[in-house]
Amino acid sequence: MRQALMLAVAAAVAAVAPWPQAMAQTEDPVAADFDKFRAIMEEANPAELFEAKGEQLWRTPRGPKNASLEQCDLGLGPGVVKGAYAQMPRYFADVDRVMDAEARIVHCMITLQGFKREDLAKKPFSSATKTPDPVSITTYVAAQSAGMKLAPQQTHPKEKAAYEIGKEIFFYRAGAYDFSCASCHGVDGQRIRTQPLPNFTRPEQAIRAIQGWPGYRMTGGVMHTLQWRLNDCFRQQRFPEPDYASEMMSALLTYLTVNAQGQEYKGLGIKR
């Protein structure tokens, strides 16, 4: 009986196996329909509400030091927001490390406003009832780079090192499923349910790692940033949870952004 069942399973797997290749390419009617739907939704993206909220949080004196973030240096000088997101991750001499946008914003909230890292890292992701401040602020900062070309810095040795570390993380297989990021995102024509998965090792597809984030997720109506997106990928791989806004996350974001460099960042996204 058991053997018969195993055989049945094997037959089912064999029947299903060739299917992903056959369905592989971009001429997928389901994906095309969804793109149409997304285009309609983008005309009035609730992400703009979080952008407005983030701008207000950026300008308002807050925290134990009662300071605004207008002295926060995102790499283009204190207070310069326009275009900063498209040029991150980058090296910051004051902390001697590479930081992505959200990591830098968290850093500014700690140093300028006196917030505590533990408090910010306790519940860093949005829920139905609460959107953490760094998420709204990152949304605001990202929106000010809409329409610009991605130009992550790769001049400082630490920026080059971050790319190499990020690459290693991307291909590092571990966890209960022996997965790596590359298991899903290093191969052409993969899909998860109806979602086609981009191959981030190809420059023309790597943009899809960055595009659309920060994004408003219609499921649950929550705002998410790349920090959440990567965190959730690690959860799906059954990896230990990465530290929020850590150097490791910045390194992985460096790898993904550099692969997509030169391509246009279209701004805030809307997700299924």
Binding site: L49, K53, T129
Partner: peptide, 25 residues
Amino acid sequence: ADPMKIRATVQGDVADVRVLMAHPM
């Protein structure tokens, strides 16, 4: 409550208005 975002543009004599409201619903 957080502010709404309202966008209103006119074509001829018809205005197209889009309103985004921040509400938990």
